[in-house]
């Protein structure tokens, strides 16, 4: 780890090169730059997640902490290369006037040619795509479930400023559920007549699930409130009887389908590194998510 105080982008870049040489691995296998915009309290946890995700997608991770915007511009950084993972990280703290110009620090540190992803682990700017750092990236990741203020309207806000390349981890959290539901219909060719999604009161994921099911199945989908955690039940009523996935404890679900015995199904709530790794697998626009955004904006409730 190299500590830099009162520094600039060029010196941070030099520190990357230096630590790579110290590590005797001049090869750069990295496939993307991941910029994390985060506050001091969440920075280390976010970096840990990013490093874990970069096992699958070797990345240069730039964690940017935007400090107090008053006073003399001040940049400090901690730079290091991977011990046990492929990639590099820099934790960059900005203070003073430069807080309004973070792109001037990040732009010179982007890997040549490779894609850029920005992730806001907690609160994200009002309009991610037009944020100074968001604009550098072709992929922007928000998390409507992790915002610290305005939780009830978080998903709506993400949708309102949606632009291609943005996606939300609330959507990623659904993948295992959706995969099981889709697989159920792969193997039992039944017509769904209506559906319901049960989840804790505020759950952007559940709202997306409702939007997805009603879009794909073209049937009414009811939203029911439970104590959680997260989504607890998804039920598809079919002409042959219900297909149900019920998960009370956030880990082990029960899968039921017509004319088949009930079976246990491991359906744990996935942790951030896994969610992030899934996001980084696809760097183009998520067309399905784009469609759901439209539907959520036009839906009368919620």
């Amino acid at each position: 780890m190299i500590e830099l105080t009162d520094t600039n982008a060029a010196k941070i870049a030099a520190a990357f090169a230096q630590s790579r040489r110290l590590d005797a691995s001049p090869a750069m296998g990295m496939v993307m730059t991941l910029v994390i915009v985060v506050d001091e309290d969440h920075a280390h946890e976010a970096i840990r997640c990013a490093q874990s995700a970069s096992h699958e997608h070797p990345a240069r991770v730039l964690a940017v902490i935007l400090g107090d915007g008053r006073g003399r511009p001040k940049i400090s950084a901690q730079v290091g290369v991977g011990e046990g993972w492929t990639g590099e990280t820099a934790l960059i703290r900005l203070g003073g006037e430069v807080v309004k110009h973070p792109a001037s620090v990040v732009l010179p540190l982007l890997l040549p040619d490779s894609p850029v992803v920005v992730w806001w682990p907690t609160d994200h700017p009002e309009d991610p795509a037009n944020d100074p750092l968001g604009a550098l990236a072709q992929r922007r990741i928000t998390d409507a479930s992790a915002v610290t203020t305005g939780k009830t309207t978080a998903l709506k806000r993400v949708c309102r400023t949606y632009s291609p390349g943005t996606s939300d981890l609330a959507w990623t959290r659904l993948t295992l559920w959706r995969a099981m539901l889709a697989a159920a219909l792969d193997h039992q060719h039944v017509r769904v007549t209506r559906a319901s999604v049960t989840a804790e009161r505020i759950s952007p994921s559940a709202d997306l699930m409702v939007a997805w099911l009603s879009w794909r199945l073209k049937v009414p989908v009811e939203r029911i409130t439970s104590a959680g955690p997260g989504i607890t039940d998804v039920v598809l009523e079919t002409t042959q009887g219900p297909i149900e996935i019920r998960r009370g404890d956030g880990r082990l679900a029960t899968f039921s389908s017509p004319d088949r015995p009930d079976r246990p199904l491991a359906l744990r709530r996935r942790e951030l590194p896994e969610l992030l790794a899934e996001e980084l697998r696809h760097l183009d626009e998520d067309d399905v998510f784009a469609e759901l955004v439209k539907r959520i904006l036009t839906s009368p409730t919620r």
Partner: peptide
């Protein structure tokens, strides 16, 4: 001619899961 309504071609997140 069964088409699974939950599988959109553009939905690349969904993995293939083996049948029972």
């Amino acid at each position: 001619s069964w088409v699974n309504p939950l599988r959109a071609v553009e939905d690349r997140r969904l993995p293939r899961i083996a049948g029972p």
